[in-house]
Simulated assay, not measured.
Amino acid sequence: MANVCEICGKGERSGFNVSHSNLKTKRTWKPNIQRVKALVKGETKRVNVCTRCMRSGKIQRAV
């Protein structure tokens, strides 16, 4: 499954783990993407959506 929200486009971010001695190693942060049934233009479709979009009501969940 792609780590991209189909509503807001939120995806993977990269950065560094920084130790106490200031050594840096690469790491990634992945968004909480879930595959849900949602109403899209009156039809029920499965979409990959981040939990922030679900919580803020940007999509209408299908039953």
Rank of each mutant, 00 (worst) to 15 (best):
R55F: 06
R52Y: 08
V40R: 14
T51I: 13
C50Q: 04
E6N: 03
T44M: 07
V18G: 01
H20D: 07
V36S: 06
C8D: 11
R46G: 06
S14E: 12
N48M: 13
N48R: 14
T44Y: 02
V4Y: 11
M54S: 00
M54W: 06
S19C: 04
T25Q: 08
T28F: 11
F16L: 02
K10F: 12
G15Y: 10
V36D: 05
S56Y: 00
V40K: 14
K41A: 11
K41T: 02
F16M: 06
L39Y: 07
N22I: 01
H20G: 01
R27S: 04
T44N: 03
Q34T: 15
I7K: 10
S21M: 07
I33A: 01
L23A: 05
V4S: 07
K37A: 14
S14I: 04
T25A: 03
T51S: 09
A2D: 11
V47L: 15
E12M: 11
V4E: 12
G42W: 05
N32E: 02
S14D: 10
V4K: 11
A38F: 02
I7L: 10
G9Y: 03
N32S: 05
C50V: 07
S21C: 00
R13W: 04
W29A: 00
R35T: 14
G9I: 03
L23N: 09
T44C: 04
K26M: 01
S19Q: 03
G11N: 06
F16H: 13
S21Q: 12
V47E: 07
Q34K: 13
R52W: 09
E43Q: 14
N32K: 13
R52F: 12
R52Q: 12
N32D: 10
W29Y: 08
A2R: 10
Q34Y: 02
G9L: 03
S14F: 09
R52I: 03
M54L: 15
R35Y: 01
E43K: 15
R13S: 07
K10M: 07
V49H: 02
C53A: 03
W29M: 02
L39A: 00
K26Q: 09
H20E: 07
F16W: 14
K41F: 11
N48A: 13
N32W: 12
K26G: 06
K41R: 11
K26R: 13
G9S: 05
K10Q: 05
I7F: 09
E43L: 07
I7R: 09
S14G: 08
S21W: 00
G42F: 06
C50F: 14
R52V: 08
C53G: 02
K26D: 04
E12S: 12
S14H: 13
P31R: 08
L23M: 08
N32V: 08
S21N: 14
V47Y: 05
V40F: 10
V36R: 13
N48C: 09
N32G: 00
S21R: 15
C5M: 06
G42K: 04
M54K: 09
N48V: 02
G42M: 01
G11L: 05
K10V: 08
M54Q: 05
T28W: 07
H20N: 10
R35V: 14
S14V: 10
C5E: 03
V47S: 01
N22R: 15
R13N: 06
N48G: 02
R55T: 09
